[in-house]
Design a protein around this nucleic acid. Structure first.
Length: 941
RNA sequence: GCCCGAGUGGCGGAAUGGCAGACGCGACGGACUCAAAAUCCGUUGUCCGAAAGGGCGUGUGGGUUCGAGUCCCACCUCGGGCACCA
C-alpha cells in the first residue's frame, strides 16, 4: 500500500522517481552534516561566531521534544517537526539567525517497564531508541543543529535539572514582593526582626527545630503529607488517570488506596495569580489560555466562619451576599469534623453514609445527573448574619478537595442546594426578588442566580435590602464579616501544589540528603550531578495488594551502598541518608529549551549572555504585539495544554525571580498542530486488523473475505494502522512526504492520513523536476527565453503569496500556489531561464533536498539554505487590465475588462454598456450601481 | 451542564464581507502501448437542457448588508477540555 507507482525499466534515466529522490536526499543530508550547514552561532561561549550573528535578527523555533519510544516514529509524529523545519528554513532565507534543534525526553515509565520485563537496563534501550529517532528525523531532512541536541537522561543535562530543583528548594515566595527569593533572605529577615514570626517570639529564642519547621514550611519545594493513590500491588503511587473507575490500577488490576504519604511537593500555587495574569503576554490561542485558566480555577469570594458544637467551621463561598439565605450547611463526608458533629442517635446512619460515599465515589463521579443524597449529623451551626441555628448535613456533592470541604447552603441561590433542600424538605427562603417570579419559592422550579433586589437580608448592623447588584452586596457582606470577625474576603484555586516525587528508578535522583533528625539538606554544587546509581533491579518493592498500610520502597532504597553517605555540609563530616525518590518525567521538560542554547556549559545551566540573546524580551513580537521574551515559536500537541505548559511556566518564573533568566515566560508564541488520524479496521470480534491489508470494494471494507468496519483514530500500534516515514521515504522520498503532510490541510487541523493521496505531491515534484531538468540526460534544460510579462506577473504574485503563507505557517496554500505556478510552466513547455532561480528558491524550505539539487544544477556551489528568499516586485503585482464581474442584484450576469486604474465612473459606464448586462436588465433602469475598485460591480435593479 | 473549536463536491481541503469549490486525490474520456502499469492531455458541485443557457447550492431557521461560507441571534450535529468547583 505504501509502494510508489512502479517505474518501468525503459523510463527516462533521470526521471524524478522514489529511487532518484532517495539518492539525492541521502547525498544532501551527508553534505549538510559534513559542512555543518545548520550549525547556529551563539553570541558567546564555545558555539560563538560573532561574524555570522552581526546584523541578523534571531528567532528561536522549538518543537515539543518527543519521548523516544521503542516502536520509532510513524508518519503522524513529524507533522509539527516538518512545519517547524520549513519555517526555520524560510526564516534563514529571510536573514534570521535561527535556533532549531531537537532533544529527547527520555526518562519515564515505559523504558522502566520495558527494563522490568526484559531485564535490559533502561539506559541501553533508551540510547538505542534515541539513535533510531535521530536516524528517522535526519532522514526527513530536518535542519537541526545536531550539536545542541540533548537527552534528559544525560548526566550532563540532569545535573542542571537537579541544580534547578535546588534553586527551587532554596527559595520561598515573598507575597509582598510577589516573587520568589532565596530562603537565606527569609532567615535574614527573621534574624533581624524585620519579619515577625507567627507567634511573635524572637528568632533567636526559638530552638533549632522550631526554626527548621518555619524554614521548611516556606520552601517552594517541600516534603509534605499529600493524598496519593497508593497501589501496594505495584509498589508505587499511581496517577489518577491510571486508576480505573472501580478503584483499581490500570496495570495489573490491583486495589488502589487513597492515603496520605510523605512526598516532595512544589508550591506552584504561590504562582497561581501570575500564571493567570501573564497569559495576557502570550500569543497563544484563546482555547489554550482558557484551559489553563480553567485548570488554575481561581474563584473570588469569602471565607465565612460558622460556630458549631465542634468549634468554628469555615466555608468558602463565591456568594457571601447570599449568607442571609443560608439555611443549612453541608460538609463533605470525609470532613475531619464530622465525627465530633455527629450526635449519638445519628451515629449509625452517618457512618453508613460515609462508608457508602467512600466506596462508590469514583464511579458516581462520572454521573452528574444522579440525585443528591445526604444525611443530617444532628448538630447545628449558627448563621453569623441571622443568628439562627442551621442544621449540618453531610453529602457527597461536597468535595473535600475543593475549598474547605464544607459549604453554606443557600437553596434559593444555588441549584444544587435547591435540589437538596427540595429533596429533604429544608426551608428555601427567598432573599432576592427575581423578575417574573413570586417570593413564594414553592412556585420556583430552580434556584435564582443573577442580579435582582435583595429582600429579607438585614440584621442590626447590615442591611442589603433593595440593593440590586450582587457585586455591591458581596462587598458589603465581606466588610461586615471582617469587621465582626466572622470571615474575610478570600480566593480559592482548583490548582493544587505539584506532587513531585515518584517511587521509581528511571528518573532524576533528588539532590537531597537527610540528617539524623530527618531534616532535608540540598547537596552542594560540587556533588552534582548526583548520578543515578547502577542496579539491575528496577522494580519498586511490591506488597500484598490489599495491605493498605504498607509503605512505598523505591528501587533506590535497596542500594545501601548508595543511600548512606558521609558528607561535610559545613559542620564537619556527618552521616546522611540520600533521598530515594526520583523526579517525575515533567522535570526534564521544564527547562530543556534553555539547555539547547548552551548545551555543553559545565559552569552554568546557560550562559546569561547567550540566554539574553535567544530568550530576552524583544522590541517587537508576532504581528506587532509586545514580546516579553521567550521562545519565538513553540509547536506541539494540544495534549500538553495544561500540565507541561503550566509546570514549565512555573519553573521558568522561579528562575526569572531568582535572576537566572531574562524572560518572564518561556514560550512566547504557541502553536498547536493537529493530529494525523488514520483509518483503523475492526472485524466482527471487535479486534483490529492490519490496516494495510484492508481493501475497499463498493464502499465496504474487507480483510481477506471478511467484512470489517472502519473507524478513525490516532495512528499507532494499538490500532494496527501505523505507517512509518521510513516506508514513505523509501517509496517516494522525504520531500514528497514533507509536501504531502503539509498540503493535507492547515497545520493546526487534524486530518486523516491517506497513503493513496501521497502520489499527488510526488507528481508535482516530478513535473517540477521535468520543467528544469532533462529526464534523459539529467542536464539542466530550461526554455531558451525569458519569461513573458504575464508569466513574470504570475511569478511575482506567487512570491508575494508564498511569503505571506510562510509567515503565517499556511504551508498548505503556499504549496498550492507553487503547484499552480509549476502547472503554468508545464503549459509553457518548460521553465523560462529567468524563472528557474526564484522557482527553486521558493520550493527550498518545503522540498529542501530537490531544491539543493536543482540549485546546484543551476550552477551554484553554495547551499540554497542561506540564499535570500525571492522578493516580489511591486510593479509586477499590479495587472494592466482588470476584469470586473458585473452582478445584478448579487448574481453575476456579465464581465467587463477595463484598464487598471479606470475610475469607478468609467467602470460603471463599461458595465452598463455590456451586452449581457443590457440583456439581463431587460430595459429596467438600475436603481443604484456599486463599484468596488479592483473587485466587482453590483447593479441594484 | 459549562468553556473552547469546527460543519463547504465522492474524499482531503481553498476563499482581506465582493466571481464558492484554488490545489491535491479519486472518477470519467483521450494520447502512448500488442496490452497493462507509469507518464502526458482533457472533463469533473448538482439539477434541467442536444447546445446556448438557466435553476439550486457552504449544517438548520432568522437577521444585518447593494452583496454573507465569512458578521449578528437562535438552534442542530461533531470534536476537544473541564465538570456536584460552593
Amino acid at each position: 500500500m505504501t509502494s510508489a507507482p512502479t517505474t518501468p525499466d525503459d523510463a527516462p534515466k533521470f526521471r524524478y522517481t522514489g529511487a532518484l529522490a532517495q539518492e539525492i536526499e541521502l547525498r544532501w543530508q551527508d553534505r549538510w552534516e559534513a559542512d555543518g550547514t545548520f550549525e547556529t552561532p551563539n553570541p558567546a561561549g564555545p558555539l560563538a561566531d560573532p561574524e555570522r550573528i552581526a546584523g541578523r535578527p534571531k528567532i528561536f523555533v522549538l518543537d515539543m521534544f518527543p519521548y523516544p519510544s521503542g516502536t520509532g516514529l510513524h508518519v503522524g509524529h513529524p507533522l509539527g517537526f516538518i512545519g517547524t523545519d520549513i519555517y526555520s528554513r524560510y526564516k534563514r532565507m529571510t536573514g534570521f539567525n535561527v535556533m532549531y534543534t531537537m532533544g529527547f525526553d527520555a526518562f519515564g515509565l515505559p523504558a522502566e517497564q520495558h527494563a522490568v520485563e526484559t531485564g535490559q537496563h533502561p539506559a541501553i534501550t533508551t540510547a538505542a531508541n534515541v539513535t533510531n529517532y535521530r536516524r528517522q528525523l535526519r532522514r526527513l531532512g530536518l535542519s537541526h543543529d545536531a550539536r545542541r541536541s540533548i537527552s534528559t537522561t544525560d548526566p550532563g543535562y540532569y545535573r542542571w535539572t537537579q541544580w534547578i530543583f535546588l534553586q527551587i528548594f532554596n527559595s520561598w515566595y515573598d507575597t509582598e514582593a510577589d516573587k520568589a527569593r532565596p530562603i537565606s533572605e527569609l532567615v535574614a529577615q527573621y534574624e533581624s526582626g524585620d519579619r515577625a514570626t507567627a507567634d511573635g517570639r524572637a528568632w533567636g529564642d526559638m530552638s533549632a527545630a522550631e526554626r527548621n519547621v518555619i524554614v521548611e514550611g516556606h520552601r517552594l519545594a517541600y516534603v509534605s503529607d499529600a493524598p496519593v493513590n497508593w497501589c501496594p500491588g505495584l509498589g508505587t503511587v499511581v496517577a489518577n488517570e491510571e486508576v480505573t473507575a472501580d478503584g483499581r490500577s490500570d496495570r495489573g488490576n490491583f486495589p488502589v488506596f487513597k492515603r496520605n504519604m510523605r512526598q516532595w511537593m512544589m508550591r506552584i500555587t504561590s504562582y497561581a495569580d501570575r500564571l493567570i495574569a501573564d497569559l495576557d503576554l502570550l500569543e497563544w490561542t484563546d482555547a489554550i489560555k482558557a484551559m489553563q485558566r480553567n485548570w488554575i480555577g481561581r474563584s473570588e469570594g469569602a471565607s465565612v466562619h460558622f460556630a458549631s458544637p465542634a468549634g468554628p467551621i469555615t466555608v468558602f463561598t463565591t456568594r457571601p451576599d447570599t449568607l442571609f439565605g443560608a439555611t443549612f450547611m453541608v460538609l463533605a463526608p470525609e470532613h475531619p469534623l464530622v465525627d465530633r458533629l455527629t450526635t449519638p442517635e445519628r451515629r449509625d446512619i452517618v457512618a453508613q453514609y460515609r462508608h457508602q460515599a467512600a466506596s462508590k465515589k469514583d464511579i458516581d463521579r462520572q454521573d452528574d445527573t444522579r440525585e443528591k443524597t445526604g444525611v443530617a449529623t444532628g448538630s447545628y451551626a449558627i448563621n453569623p448574619l441571622t443568628g439562627e441555628s442551621i442544621p449540618i448535613w453531610i453529602a457527597d456533592y461536597v468535595l473535600m478537595g475543593y475549598g474547605t470541604g464544607a459549604i453554606m447552603a443557600v437553596p434559593c441561590g444555588d441549584q444544587r442546594d435547591f435540589e437538596f433542600a427540595r429533596l429533604y424538605g429544608l426551608p428555601i427562603p427567598a432573599i432576592q426578588q427575581p423578575p417574573d417570579r413570586s417570593l413564594d419559592t414553592a412556585t420556583w422550579d430552580s434556584a435564582f442566580i443573577g442580579d435582582a433586589p435583595f429582600v429579607n437580608s438585614s440584621n442590626d448592623s447590615l442591611d442589603l435590602n433593595d440593593i440590586d447588584s450582587v457585586a455591591t452586596a458581596k462587598r458589603l457582606t465581606n466588610q461586615w464579616l471582617a469587621a465582626n470577625g466572622h470571615g474575610e474576603a478570600a480566593i480559592t484555586y482548583k490548582l493544587r501544589d505539584w506532587l513531585f516525587s515518584r517511587q521509581r528508578y528511571w528518573g532524576e535522583p533528588f539532590p537531597i540528603v537527610y540528617d539524623l533528625d530527618g531534616n532535608p539538606h540540598g547537596l552542594p554544587d560540587s556533588e552534582l550531578p548526583l548520578v543515578l546509581p547502577e542496579t539491575d533491579s528496577f522494580s519498586p518493592r511490591t506488597f500484598d495488594p490489599n495491605d493498605e498500610f504498607s509503605n512505598p520502597e523505591s528501587p533506590l532504597d535497596r542500594l545501601e551502598w548508595w543511600t548512606h553517605v558521609e558528607l561535610d555540609l559545613g559542620d564537619g563530616p556527618q552521616p546522611y541518608r540520600r533521598d530515594t525518590n526520583v523526579m517525575p518525567q515533567w522535570a526534564g521538560s521544564c527547562w530543556y529549551e534553555l539547555r539547547y542554547l548552551d548545551p555543553t556549559n559545565e559552569q552554568q545551566f546557560v550562559d546569561p549572555e547567550v540566554e539574553r540573546y535567544w530568550m530576552g524580551p524583544q522590541p517587537e513580537g508576532h504581528d506587532g504585539h509586545e514580546h516579553p521574551g521567550g521562545v519565538d515559536l513553540y509547536v506541539g500537541g494540544v495534549e500538553h495544554a495544561v500540565l507541561h505548559l503550566l509546570y514549565a511556566r512555573f519553573w521558568h518564573k522561579v528562575l526569572f525571580d531568582l535572576g537566572h533568566v531574562s524572560s518572564k515566560e518561556p514560550y512566547y508564541r504557541l502553536f498547536n498542530q493537529g493530529y494525523i488520524l488514520a483509518a483503523a479496521f475492526k472485524d466482527e470480534r471487535e479486534i483490529y486488523v492490519d490496516a494495510t491489508e484492508v481493501v475497499e470494494r463498493d464502499g465496504n471494507y474487507f480483510h481477506g473475505d471478511l467484512r470489517v468496519t472502519r473507524e478513525w483514530g490516532k495512528m499507532g500500534k494499538s490500532l494496527k494502522n501505523a505507517v512509518t516515514p521510513d516506508d514513505i521515504c523509501q517509496s517516494f522520498g522525504a520531500d514528497t512526504l514533507r509536501l504531502y503532510e503539509m498540503a493535507m490541510g492547515p497545520l493546526d487541523a487534524s486530518r486523516p492520513w491517506e497513503t493513496r493521496d501521497v502520489v499527488g505531491m510526488y507528481r508535482f515534484l516530478q513535473r517540477l523536476w521535468r520543467n528544469v531538468v532533462d529526464e534523459e540526460t539529467g542536464e539542466l534544460a530550461l526554455l531558451d527565453a525569458d519569461a513573458t510579462l504575464d508569466t513574470q506577473r504570475l511569478v511575482h504574485r506567487t512570491i508575494n503569496g508564498v511569503r505571506d503563507d510562510m509567515d503565517a505557517l499556511r504551508f498548505n496554500t503556499a504549496i498550492a500556489k507553487l503547484i499552480e505556478l509549476n502547472n503554468q510552466l508545464t503549459k509553457l513547455g518548460g521553465c523560462p531561464r529567468d524563472i528557474a532561480e526564484p522557482l527553486v528558491l521558493m520550493i527550498a524550505p518545503l522540498a529542501a533536498h530537490v531544491a539543493e539539487e536543482l540549485w546546484a544544477k543551476l550552477g551554484h556551489t553554495d547551499s540554497v539554505a542561506y540564499q535570500p528568499f525571492p522578493t516580489a516586485d511591486p510593479a509586477l503585482l499590479v495587472a494592466e487590465t482588470i476584469e470586473y464581474p458585473v452582478q445584478i442584484n448579487g448574481k453575476v450576469r456579465g464581465r467587463v475588462t477595463v484598464a487598471a486604474g479606470t475610475e469607478p465612473s468609467g467602470v460603471e459606464a463599461a458595465a452598463l454598456a455590456d451586452d449581457k448586462v443590457i440583456a439581463s436588465l431587460a430595459g429596467a433602469a438600475p436603481k443604484k450601481v456599486i463599484v468596488i475598485p479592483g473587485r466587482m460591480v453590483n447593479i441594484v435593479a
